[in-house]
Every structure is written in structure tokens, then in C-alpha cells.
Design a protein around this nucleic acid. Sequence first.
DNA 1: CCCATACATGGAAGCGCTTCCACCGCAATA
DNA 2: TATTGCGGTGGAAGCGCTTCCATGTATGGG
Lengths: 327, 327
Amino acid sequence: MTGEHTATLDDVARAAGVSRATASRVVTGQGPASPRARDRVTAAVAALGYVPDASARALVTRTGTRLAIAVIGHTAAVLDDPYVGRVLTSAAHVAAEREVGVSLHWLPLADPGSLARLADGRGLGGLVVVNPTRPALESVPRTLRGRVAAVGVGARHVPSFDVDNRAGTDGVVRHLVRTGRRRIAMVTGPAWLPCCDRAVDAYRRVLRDSGAEPRVVTGDFTAARGAEAATEIMARWPDTDAVFALSDLTALGVLDGLHALGVRVPGDVAVAGFDDIAFAGLSRPALTTSTHPVEDIAAAAAQAVLDRRDISGATFYPSALVVRDSA
Amino acid sequence: MTGEHTATLDDVARAAGVSRATASRVVTGQGPASPRARDRVTAAVAALGYVPDASARALVTRTGTRLAIAVIGHTAAVLDDPYVGRVLTSAAHVAAEREVGVSLHWLPLADPGSLARLADGRGLGGLVVVNPTRPALESVPRTLRGRVAAVGVGARHVPSFDVDNRAGTDGVVRHLVRTGRRRIAMVTGPAWLPCCDRAVDAYRRVLRDSGAEPRVVTGDFTAARGAEAATEIMARWPDTDAVFALSDLTALGVLDGLHALGVRVPGDVAVAGFDDIAFAGLSRPALTTSTHPVEDIAAAAAQAVLDRRDISGATFYPSALVVRDSA
DNA sequence: CCCATACATGGAAGCGCTTCCACCGCAATA
DNA sequence: TATTGCGGTGGAAGCGCTTCCATGTATGGG
């Protein structure tokens, strides 16, 4: 009230005519307090516009109540994708339900060590790492052990949550085979993401079963790269009759690239993606893809961390084939 | 090291054989310290894996260095849109450059008062409010005065940054008129967002100039609503020859809805959106729209807050017409 | 009417850190 | 040799809060 001074608990106590201890009890709602004291303190809080200092509180309670979300790989490719936004949104939602704050950290792929600095202070309830790499996870300070989870599968010792893209890929590629495609190319994601290996593996397996040769091109989950990849694929293997991209965004780029080449979809070449993003159903032709329950996955990671549930190992969420027009 | 105990500055000082004061000076790099002391403390820090406690530090320095980002309107409509993700990303990037942490807050539209609680602790460098509403901004505690900026135009007394959707709308609608459309309908955004008023106003103005009647339908920035809106519009005004949606997502929904109705785009009806999201260029037909420099806007807001630059009033960022196939 | 019991309350300690201040020893100066 | 000055140092205070503990003060039963 009086100019610049920010009200402290002492001010409240003095205004209410009680001790600081009593004021604290009322404010936190912990411990006994008479109705009279309760009223007076409440009134004082309102009058002074008192807001407890989180730092001071965290200092004494040691009850770090903040969820840190660290996103590895601060590149345009990562940012354009709706993926990160969905993860953030969902994790923040879970945190909000539990009334814990969320802090956001964007880490360059090259410097995972910054993850250590991030855990400054014990005022941290937990850490969710998005796009975890092994070096990044290994740089997590000991202090946080048991309060870390990963969205995406990275290292063994951290509970991880990801879509079962092995099964998802299997489903998509089998669908392509089932509908008569044989010369199927695949556009993967960035090499540093472990998820890609599993997917490529599944793709190879299905092709082997149907006696076809794998045709793999590395992508980066962007649409632009998808368009390029389409051109590369058609130049290198002109008889290709299907393209599977490990990201819808990329698949949409492929659609675009093929269109520019005058290739008809699905007439000449079938196209399938992965993720079932909002736009997948809106493209022409509407994209055949496999679902990716990003929100569920991110929520699970946040919950595991905040509820201190010990879920060791990797948990895979099912991915369901969505057949639309493109394949 | 020794089990559960987290190293404190006292431990470091003891291990280095100096006083806590000296240890603090070395760790913070402030104040004098002999090379010998410096070395010993540095070694101790490394050996013990010491990380300063941010809460304790913030408590005494009162130098709150953290950027809070509050998103008003925690609804599915807000979340599906890539918009929030882009804002977050960009603001977090600016914060990272300045080495300040970011905290994320999801606020229900109904309870803007929670903005007050959010400013718990003086450990806050600034606040960026996304989708600001007047009640929300007015609930910002006095403590933060001068360290608040808004992404989107809400209340007068807070520096705000937004796209010039008045000019943008003007550009799009004039383009529609120029290409021979006369019976132009508009799908706006949620009523509680002030930006919509300005856009609708611009739309009305252009129509008045060309002597046409306005046809306004309220949307919510989702694709689903866009599809519905298309149906409503064609039912209510069957002779409509253009639809302008204040969001690309909605415009894509309109495209979908019209397709389902057997209406050809742009043959029968032209469709235009707003935002120029990544997917706008990938739809069939590719969407005509107007740009929305979300990243620039969010970065400007974050900078204004963190650099304590006093930019009063609203700053509007230009929106450029992007003509593609749909109009 | 008195004691045991519960509840309400204030004093005080202490969370981990920064920083003021007084102090000490040393080199440079008179 | 006696003085000044200064960089290096440790003691101690205190940031705003929670919480243990001891001290009252009403209430019930005996």
C-alpha cells in the first residue's frame, strides 16, 4: 500500500494483531487457528494485498514444487512441429491440476550439460525431458534422481514414455502392402532421435517378409524436407509406389513434392504419415496415418514425476492406423 | 556424495578450508578473492557437485530473474491452435538468451484472479500475458507494475503487441472484392478476444465501401467450428461467394465443410484465412491468407519486459497478404 | 470446585544464501 | 622505523517464511 514496500508476513501479523506464527498457520491452512484469528488474518491479507514469497517458502519447506520441462534440440525443425507445443500444453495442464508451477527450458542439442545448471535449487519437484538423448539424461544431477521422466525413449535408467512407433510403423507398412504396394520408401526423422531406429527396424522387417528392398531416406520431421525427400526418392527409385514418412508434417511435404512432380496420390504413389496431427484430415487427399497420443504420453510423464511413482523402463502407448484417402 | 545429503555452501566452505563468505564470493564471482582461495573453492564445488539453491539466492538478492508466461483461456480451442506453441517457443527463446528461466501458467478464462497468485514471490523478472483480457490484466499485482507486457491487445495500461489484423483483414477482404467477390461471409474468433472486434470492424468497413451486407458468424479458431460454420453460412446465405476466417485453422475447416457440401473452391466460393500457419501452403487448394508474425510479436513482448523498456500502448505488427489458390 | 485435556498462541530457531563491516597482515610510502 | 593503504578474509546479520516447542486459556469430567 505505502508506495513501494511489498507486504510481508510480518506486516500481515502486525495488522491482524497476531504473531507471525499464527499468521503463517492461517495463510497456509496448516495447523490450528481460532475463527477470530482466521478472520483477522484473512482481512489483513486482503487489505495489504499480501502474496507469500515462493522463494522463502521453498527455502524452508524444501518441498520443491515446480515441474521443469526441458526440450532438447532447439532447432527450427523441432519448433515448427506441433509436437512440442502439445507436450508442453499437456504437461502444463497436469502441473496446473496439482497446483505446481512449470518452468520451461530450451536446450541446444550440443550442450546437454546445461541440464545440470537447470536444476539449480531444490525448488524443483521434477523434471520432464523431451526428446531425451543419452548424454543429456546422464548429465541430470543426482539430486533429481527419482524425479525425472522422459517423453520419448532415450536412456535406460530413466522412466520413458513414448508412442509405440514400432507397432505403428508395422501397422502402416502392412496396410500399404495389403493394398498392393510393394516398392515402399520411408522418410525417417533425425538420426539423433532413438525413436527413428525402432520405426525403421519395423519397416525393414515388414519389407523383408514381403520380399521387398528397403528404401530409406533421412528426414528431419519438417514439411520442407518432405518435399525434397519426395523428389529424391522419385529420382533414385522411379518405380516407387508408396512413401511412408515418420511424421505427418513430412508426409504433407511429400504430398506437396509429389504434386509438383505431377505424380498422382494415391493413384501413382500412396502416401502415409505418422502422428495424426490436426491437419492430417484436412489435406487433399486426406492423409492416411497412425495416431500418436502425445497428450496422454506427456501427461503420463508429468504424473509419474509429480506423484513420485516409480515407473521404471519404457512405457509405449498404442498407435492406431487411420485410413483416409492418401493410402 | 554421501548418500542423500545435498551439498550446501557451508559444505563447500568447509571442504575448501575457507569461510562461507569467501566461498560465496568465489561462486558468484563478486568481490575479491585470492587465487589460492579461488582454486580451492572451485575444486570443492566440483568435488561435492555443489549447485547453488536458487530459492535461497533469490530470497536474499531479491533479484527475481524469471519470466512468467500466462496463457489466458485454457480451452481446447486455444490449445489446438499452433499459436500458443509459437508464442511460448519464441518467448522462451528470448528468455534463454538472457539466461533467465521461464515459467508457464495456464489460466482458466473464468478465473483471471489466479494471475495474482502466480506472482507469488518477488522472484519474478516479468510477466507476459497471452490472450489478455481486461479483468485478467487488472488483477496483476502492483508489485509487477512496469514488468508486464501482453501478447494480444487487451487493456490500455499494459504495453501490448499484436498483429495488425485490422489492416490484415482489410487486405484480405479487399483482395476478395478485387477478384470479383461480393457476397463475402466472415467467421470471427471467440467474442472475448478483443482482436476480433477490430478485424470485424475492418471487414464491415470494406463491405460498406463496396455496398455489400456483412455476414458474420462467430467461431472459436478451431477447424471443427470452421466446418460447422461453412454449413451454417451456406444454409443461411446460399449465394455466398467467399468466406474469410480469422484463423487458418478455421479456414481449413471451412474448406473441409464446403468440400463435404460439394461446393467447389475457389470456383463457387473463395476461402481465405488469417495467420499463414505452416500448413496453409500445403492444403488443397492452398490457402490464401495473411501473415501473422507470432514469433516477432512474442519476442518483442518478452524483450520489453525483460529489458524493462517502457513501451507504452499497443504496437501492431504488419500482416501481409499471401495469395495462393483458394481465393 | 479442581484437575486433566484439548486447543490456540507466540517465541525462537533455522532453511541456504549474500553482503556489510571490521579486521588482519602485507607492501608501499614518508 | 612508523605510518598509511589495500586486497583478502571471516563474523554476523538478515532476506521471508515454516514449524517445533513451551506457554497460556477455555472446556470437559470427576
